[in-house]
Simulated scan of single mutants.
Amino acid sequence: MLDRRIFEGVRVLDLTRVMSGPFCTAMMADLGAEIIKIELPGSGEEGRFFAPHVAGESTYFAMLNRGKKSVTVNMKSPDGIALIRDIAKTADVLVENFRPGVMERLGLGHAALQAQNSRLIYASISGFGQEGPYRDWPAFDLVVQAMSGLMHITGERDGRPTAVGESLADVTTGMFAAFGVASALYDREKTGTGRRVEVAMLDSLFSMLITALSRKLYTDKPVRRVGNRHPETYPVDSFATRDGDIVIVGFTDGLYRKICTVIGRPDLSADPRLATNIGRNAHEEELRSAIAQWAAGLGRDEAVAALRREDVTAAPVWSFEELLDSGHVEARGLVREGVNTKLGTIPLVGQPVRFHGAPGPDGPQRSPMVGEHTDEVLADILCLTSERIAALRAARAI
């Protein structure tokens, strides 16, 4: 059993807002890092205005900022910028997701801060990167889904391009940023020196489109929308039953033959036209019709049970309520207890990687109120007196 959490002793100066950056630093907070989140005095960061709200508190913000310390600093004030520079001297990691060039204009760029702290790992998250033709474009998740090609390949075959029903570009970028920071921390153990880490939302989402890229970069086949079926393999698709949808994954010849047995069509299994995936793709309509006819006569759970009896990979299409009621989320400990001053005990969903033998969080993680830890951090980390803190507050620097 380890006696410390993975990132215990790592201090992160968090200058991020909305989702991709906060998701990155939340993953680090889950593993024991001290996250000092800088927010605007009074209003806090933009994510606090995102719905849904309960008792005036954004539950979106609460989920993304678990386990962090909120410090309010006026970044338009020279004294405020000086405070951030002083905290950066003590930090192991800085994460920011301002538009390229903003941090340099504030005097908080990589070169300036690494000059005062050579061990600092400086992570920059942006929509399109620190250079390139779209460097200065504003980016939100929908913009990146649209430009990455993901929307173009998502949706029904004859329908309009469709966004994925979650902020996938933000989340994947946050994960890649956390991976980059962890890699840089490992590298620092060998070199003693920090480095800059740069992650762009478009790059992150583009790099995950493996099936589409393997088709586009290596063949002359068009990349297009195919609904719920796999673009290269059949039968991998969804089907309607009497009371809901199911998915079936028949990606090998053996699984295909088992599907034919389950649906009572041994003739399809013996048909030489369908013996290979190439043939099954060529005769997709015939296969889809046969499986759809079988599924339509059964209940959803009945159809899945029949397929699983033959060890065919299949599953029901669940709602969130069905997943939460399934017992799996509870068994895996995916939702845990947190705390907020206004909301009291709240549910939080942390990063899913398990480190066997490492301790988990010490009690419920806290979702902070705006500026809740300002005095504590300035006193403990910068050793400022209560009189100096009061003077900074009077000058509206904090």
Rank of each mutant, 00 (worst) to 15 (best):
G159R: 06
T162M: 14
D86H: 04
E96Q: 07
H110T: 10
P161Q: 08
F176D: 07
Q114M: 13
G155F: 06
I121A: 10
V93C: 09
D86R: 14
F176T: 12
G192K: 05
D86S: 12
L185W: 00
V143A: 14
G149L: 06
G165D: 10
T193H: 08
V102K: 08
I84K: 07
S148V: 13
V197W: 02
S148Y: 12
L83Y: 05
K89P: 06
H110S: 11
G180P: 01
F98V: 09
T191W: 13
I87E: 02
R99L: 15
A177V: 00
E104D: 15
I81C: 01
P138H: 07
F206V: 15
G180L: 01
D187E: 15
R135A: 08
M201D: 01
Q116E: 15
R85S: 00
L113W: 09
E189A: 10
G109Q: 01
A184R: 02
I153S: 07
E198M: 04
V95A: 09
G174E: 03
M75D: 03
Y122C: 05
D79R: 13
G194M: 00
L120F: 00
L106N: 11
S124M: 12
T162L: 15
S207T: 11
P78M: 08
R196Y: 04
H152G: 06
L185D: 04
Q116D: 09
I153T: 05
A82L: 02
R196N: 03
N74K: 06
A91Y: 04
F128R: 11
L150Y: 05
D158Y: 05
S126H: 07
A184P: 00
G101T: 12
A182I: 10
T173W: 04
V71P: 00
A115Q: 14
A163Q: 15
K76W: 03
A123I: 00
L142P: 05
V171D: 10
L142Q: 11
G192D: 03
T72N: 13
E198P: 04
A169V: 07
K89T: 12
G159W: 12
R196I: 05
A112V: 14
A146S: 15
A112P: 13
A112R: 14
V197L: 03
Q130E: 04
D86L: 04
G194I: 13
L150Q: 09
V93F: 01
L213Y: 07
S118L: 10
D86E: 12
A91D: 03
S167V: 08
A169E: 03
L94G: 08
L202W: 12
T211E: 12
L185Q: 00
G107K: 12
G149S: 10
D79H: 05
G194R: 02
E131C: 13
T154R: 00
